[in-house]
Design a protein around this nucleic acid. Sequence first.
DNA 1: CGTAAGTGGAATCTCGGATTCCGGTTAGCG
DNA 2: CGCTAACCGGAATCCGAGATTCCACTTACG
Lengths: 195, 195
Amino acid sequence: MRADARRNLDKIVEAAAEVVSERGVNAPMEAIAKRAGVGVGTLYRRFPDRDALIAAVGDLYIHTMANALDTAARDRADAWSAIWDFVSWVAAPGRAALATALAVVPEEAIVDREEFARMRAGWVERFDALVRRAQAEGSMRADVGVEDLIHLLNVFTCHPDDLPAPVAADPGRYLRLMLDGMKAGAATPPPDAGA
Amino acid sequence: MRADARRNLDKIVEAAAEVVSERGVNAPMEAIAKRAGVGVGTLYRRFPDRDALIAAVGDLYIHTMANALDTAARDRADAWSAIWDFVSWVAAPGRAALATALAVVPEEAIVDREEFARMRAGWVERFDALVRRAQAEGSMRADVGVEDLIHLLNVFTCHPDDLPAPVAADPGRYLRLMLDGMKAGAATPPPDAGA
DNA sequence: CGTAAGTGGAATCTCGGATTCCGGTTAGCG
DNA sequence: CGCTAACCGGAATCCGAGATTCCACTTACG
């Protein structure tokens, strides 16, 4: 492969990652091409079709996610802070969007692949361990689980176009609200049946 | 208007309301027609175009929403319980979806109309009053506002197709989680900078 | 009954992308 | 330096999803 071609390939994956995290998994090829500063044709010379490109982005994301999670877990003594860190990291501007989408939405092109599935499973497992630890440490409600966390991450970071602008602009604000609701003791029994 | 025609008109609006609350504001005309048990042509005999039909649904919803809010406010002595009730009502299965979408997303066809705008403004105002009261009563955090509540209602009930299945299946669970995070005292300062 | 009001739903039209194609460019070997 | 296999850009083409139109066929009801 010619040197310039390799350079372009990198630009493409990078651009795809950005665009996808801004516009969701359905971002059009042309948007990605423009961002990468190349023509659509070039995308197709490297990837057989859109699915393949998206899959590449998926792999990139799941690795990054796994990394961020492990870092947070290592840097924090208590599980709650680690979770907090990780969630904040995901919500940071220009962040993962897809990462979480991948983790839940059955985006066939991405999820139906050996390597991704393995990676994802490991990530979920470690995330789950962290949640259980937080619960054991008494800092997190026992009636919520990793799945809840994952779903919410997904909701707030994956379909930016469908979110009200203020939410898309600062998903972190809402994710923190949710974390506050997940703290130990935050649960409220619904108020008794009406007056 | 012939009696059978009037009957159909009712079926149409009703069907539209249902379908929209299940599939979002972009539900296709054909889906609505099928649900109403009529042909697409019939929809177009009553409404000049899709926007007009959606607008009708919008009016129906905003009225229903306003009603539910007022009822909750009347039946509960404390503002917090009223809010809780109202949010639960909106999240109930088969509920409003659109109602909230309308309230925020600039869905031109719907929002850009005198009557709807007026209705919506009144609703927001009363909702806001309720929130402030809850804050005054010391049951709700002061750093969140009606807008947050509205946005969340919107996120969790408007684009069912884009939500992870478990969330779409029980948005109430997640909305309640958020409410828990909005209770007075739920705010957590982020854990201090890392270990 | 007669006929204007109504009806279903296939056919048509649009539009937003994905994918293909090819004439024009280069990297980089000899 | 030339040469040519790799590369490129992006216009042209292809498609599926839905909105909207149209009309031969029914039906309510005066």
